[in-house]
């Protein structure tokens, strides 16, 4: 069977379509918040929160309740908590993220070790598995992605202003504290809805990679978001197909593809692209 026949066979299965819907919706929503986090030098919050999500999932699996919903409540709360720690200036942002991530990961692994019995499930949450995506995950991903995109689009100018220069935004009458809290909630939501396809350890790459890929080409902020979203959708689609064909974990395949694309555009920009 050649590759096209294999892919056609893949899309005759429901799981492949579910993975596609989840992947594309997460690709778009994470690209919408990525530029704000990357440019505010807060991109590692996604990585930190994914560790918190791991702990949340471990608790959810232990109590046999919906692990993603459980995780979302915890991750959003911790995201706002990290932001507040950073705002009080008693702890730098990266230190707050590092501490929270380490404690959450330790808590999750201890829980998994003590409880036992759900190690296979946990592996699929760590690195993403398209086979485990349920219909409810699709509904959750699409719904929350629409919410994230709608909020970011509505608050676009305020978020742009705050990201460029927070003091100027404040003087202009923008409530930056409220805006930062909204951003923290959106990050928490995006991290959790991306876990099924990407896994807790790799979801942050979907927030960072599309933005830095787009920044290699773009001059403007709006075009950065659009190009990030478009490139991320293509990468996720090809990544999922690659994951199926090669039998690799979906999250890892998508991250590797992102890495290859970034390297390609970076080298093109530095070596081949005419200057000026």
């Amino acid at each position: 069977m050649n590759i096209i026949q294999e892919l056609m066979a893949a899309f005759s299965y429901g799981f492949m379509w579910r993975a596609l819907f989840v992947g594309v919706s997460v690709a778009i929503s994470s690209s919408f918040i990525g530029p704000y986090l990357v440019l505010k030098r807060f991109s590692m919050i996604g990585h930190g929160l994914s560790h918190v999500a791991f702990a949340g999932i471990a608790v959810g699996l232990l109590f046999r309740t919906a692990p993603l919903i459980f995780s979302m409540v915890i991750v959003v709360s911790v995201s706002v908590f990290i932001l507040k720690l950073n705002e009080t200036a008693k702890l730098h942002g990266d230190a707050a993220i590092g501490l929270t991530a380490a404690v959450a990961m330790a808590f999750g692994t201890v829980l998994a070790s003590v409880a036992g019995g759900f190690n296979v499930d946990l592996f699929s949450f760590l690195f993403g598995s398209i086979l485990t995506i349920q219909r409810i995950d699709v509904y959750l991903s699409i719904t929350f992605s629409i919410v994230v995109i709608a909020v970011v689009t509505t608050l676009y100018h305020d978020l742009f202003s705050m990201t460029f220069e927070e003091d100027f935004a404040k003087v202009s009458g923008i409530n930056t504290k409220r805006l930062n809290t909204i951003l923290a909630v959106l990050v928490g939501v995006t991290v959790v809805i991306g876990i099924r396809a990407m896994g807790t350890l790799l979801i942050s790459s979907l927030i960072i990679f599309p933005t830095i890929i787009a920044m290699q080409f773009t001059k403007g902020f709006k075009t950065t978001i659009v190009i990030a979203a478009v490139s991320s959708v293509f990468i996720v689609i090809f990544g999922l197909m690659g994951s199926y064909l090669l039998d690799w974990p979906s999250g890892s395949t998508i991250v590797l593809l992102n890495g290859v694309v970034f390297l390609g555009v970076y080298l093109y920009n530095r070596i081949l692209r005419p200057q000026g």
Binding site: F160, F164, A214
Partner: peptide, 26 residues
């Protein structure tokens, strides 16, 4: 303001986007 973010030479914002911010932010 002093020491602006614009000194980050990789910040993707065009001149018209930055100047427009002066109106749109308010």
């Amino acid at each position: 303001p002093q020491h602006t973010m614009s000194l980050d030479r990789f910040f993707p914002a065009t001149v018209d986007e930055v100047v427009g911010m002066g109106l749109l932010a308010k």
